[in-house]
């Protein structure tokens, strides 16, 4: 026993190295699973506060760009509103609207930390459970889909960015409503792969890809991107489709968090089918 201690003492540098590497390894495998990123992440209050303070300085440098983007979004929303109003004038509908509460609620939030250059990119927002943010809500911005919330603390929340290889989203081709799943290719921050679209579907370069009605997280028809390449791979029944993402992840500032108020009902109903 004593000689064991002496051995350990003599080689303490190596032993300590192995012990610390073992701790790191345990941390890697047990916390990097995105559903279990709980303690060591940037939604904890300390890191969140530091990021927010820095982001408030950083904001001044992009004020004009942010303003231009918000103005453009206002204009497009105003156009839509005008269109709806004129529709209502032409075809007035009289029905009590109370049953049909809006299915989606939007909360605006600011991005205080974000990356595009890792294989698993995460995003931190300055709103948390106190503002009604919950895990599994979608994140969008004016130009398209951004990601999904995974962790919330009282004042901050973190989520998976679309640029995360652990994230996939149900997407459809806008013109014919064929749905597949969209996943980041891990290579470039503005392209992703659309999978599971069979040969018989007509696909051409330039088609828009939007969120599908199957997701339950995002409303149907939110822009994701446009198709830039379409290959026929040998040996399978599916296309290889490259999509250029419409969201500019590098300059993300303001986003909206989408809550599907009927999602719990939907999941409960669908879970009844399991096991039958």
């Amino acid at each position: 026993m004593r000689s064991l201690f002496r051995f350990l003492l003599r080689n303490y540098f190596l032993m300590m190295f192995l012990a610390l590497e073992a701790i790191s390894f345990v941390l890697i495998v047990s916390f990097n699973n995105y559903q279990r990123v709980t303690f060591f992440n940037s939604s904890n209050n300390f890191a969140g506060t530091v990021y927010e303070k820095f982001s408030s300085i950083d904001d001044y440098f992009s004020l004009s760009r942010t303003n231009a983007r918000l103005a453009a979004e206002n204009a497009s929303l105003r156009k839509q509103l005008q269109f709806r109003m004129s529709l209502q004038e032409q075809y007035p509908v009289n029905r009590p609207d109370t049953v049909d509460a809006p299915a989606y609620i939007f909360t605006s939030a600011k991005v205080i930390n974000n990356s595009v250059n890792k294989q698993f990119n995460y995003i931190t927002l300055n709103k948390g459970s106190r503002h009604g943010i919950k895990p599994d809500m979608g994140i969008i911005d004016a130009s398209g889909v951004v990601g999904v919330i995974t962790n919330v603390s009282p004042n901050y929340s973190t989520g998976l960015s679309l640029l995360n290889k652990r994230f996939s989203i149900s997407a459809q081709i806008n013109k014919n409503k064929y749905a597949g799943s969209l996943m980041w290719d891990g290579e470039h921050y503005n392209t992703a792969d659309l999978k599971e679209i069979p040969f018989n579907v007509e696909v051409s370069v330039g088609d828009t890809v939007v969120t599908s009605s199957h997701s339950g997280i995002f409303p149907e028809g939110i822009m994701i991107g446009t198709i830039i390449k379409r290959d026929v791979s040998s040996g399978t029944n599916f296309y290889n489709i490259k999509v250029e993402l419409s969201t500019s992840f590098k300059t993300l500032k303001y986003v909206e968090v989408v809550q599907n108020t009927k999602r719990t009902e939907l999941i409960k109903l669908e879970s009844n089918n399991v096991g039958e």
Binding site: F13, L14, F17, L20, E21, I23, S24, F25, V26, L27, I28, V29, F31, N32, V37, F40, N41, S42, N44, F46, A47, V50, Y51, Y122, T158
Partner: peptide, 23 residues
């Protein structure tokens, strides 16, 4: 490594690399 990990939400990755470098 752990300090950088906490900010990056990547526990263990940076600390593993820095411990190897220290060794």
């Amino acid at each position: 490594g752990l300090s950088v990990d906490i900010f990056n939400s990547t526990p263990g990755i940076h600390s593993g690399a820095t411990v190897l470098l220290g060794f």
